[in-house]
């Protein structure tokens, strides 16, 4: 294949990866930003979305209802987790990390028990192959990119134009002040946690026709989301999308021309360094 072919493929892959990654990481970023906690179980919400989508695809209704049901079901589960676990821990950063590690294993093992160890495929709801001069490409991947873009836009609208968004931004900026102005911070937290999980589940459901559902698929999604969120800055929607693209395209380029494992090592180290060098820590005023 010619150099243009390689480059075009890398960019195309990068764009699709970027959109999916942005959607996956968005929930983590919201939770990071508004609630100031690190949700290690985020990848498992992604996996749950994929598994639920598979389940729906075996029902008469087919795959499409899953795109509504998966985020709702997973969101509800996350809502419960917030009420039963996180709130009782008073959202202390370190305790919530330990608790969400616990949730990670509980979700993963329950899925293994109920759903089994298999990687199960789902037929894409729309399928066509695009034939470029150098290679062919999946049309559904472009559809996924499009839907992700629409969802990112919708989230932005919710954040900037609705009362809920206003409450969320207020809580993010100053929790006590928001409370003083009558925002029910508790309720906002529960909603944000559910919304974050729902977005992850949505991403999982969307990619299942590309990737298949498997009970161990969450860890990679989690690590990639971490990288994106840290690079993009917490709670920043624009930053998350930009970082997702940067990671998506550079991963596409580096792994087309070099070793993909090396690409992952380099990206991980770079992000760790960014985090170290960012003064003030992850949560701004935290750490004093």
């Amino acid at each position: 294949m010619s150099f243009e072919g390689h480059l075009f493929l890398a960019l195309l892959e990068g764009t699709v990866t970027g959109f999916v990654l942005a959607l996956t990481a968005l929930g983590l970023s919201l939770v990071f930003g508004v609630m100031r906690i690190v949700n290690v179980a985020h990848g498992e919400f992604f996996m749950l979305g994929a598994v639920i989508a598979w389940y729906f695809s075996t029902l008469p209704g087919g795959f499409l209802p899953a795109l509504v049901a998966a985020p709702l079901l997973v969101g509800a589960a996350a809502f419960l987790a917030d009420r039963l676990v996180l709130r009782r821990l008073e959202y202390k950063p370190e305790s919530t990390i330990v608790a969400t590690i616990g949730l990670l294993y509980i979700i993963q093992q329950l899925v293994l028990t109920v759903y089994g160890p298999y990687a199960r495929p789902v037929a894409a709801p729309v399928y066509f192959r695009l034939d470029f001069p150098w290679f062919g490409y999946s049309g559904y991947k472009l559809v996924v990119a499009g839907v992700s873009a629409a969802l990112l836009g919708a989230t932005w609208l919710v954040m900037s134009r609705t009362t809920l968004g206003l409450y969320m931004r207020a809580t993010q900026q100053d929790r006590e002040m928001a409370q003083a102005f009558g925002v029910s911070v508790d309720r906002v937290y529960a909603l944000v946690f559910a919304l974050g999980a729902g977005l992850a589940a949505m991403a999982g459901a969307l990619v299942v026709p590309i990737q298949q559902a498997h009970y161990l698929m969450g860890l990679d999604a989690l690590l990639m989301s971490f990288i994106v969120v840290i690079l993009g800055g917490l709670g920043s929607l624009g930053g998350t999308v930009a970082a997702a693209f940067l990671i998506g395209v550079s991963d596409g380029l580096v792994s087309v021309f070099f070793s993909p494992t090396l690409a992952k090592i380099v990206a991980t180290l770079l992000v760790a360094l960014v985090l170290v060098l960012r003064t003030g820590g992850l949560f701004g005023e935290e750490g004093t």
């Binding site: 985090l275 170290v276 992850l282 750490g287």
Partner: peptide, 22 residues
């Protein structure tokens, strides 16, 4: 990593360890 604050320290150590694993 010790330049990082407590929660960042947690994430950063995880990242370095993951790079080591890879």
């Amino acid at each position: 990593t010790l330049r990082a604050s407590r929660v960042s320290f947690l994430i950063v150590t995880m990242m370095f360890s993951q790079a080591f694993y890879l």
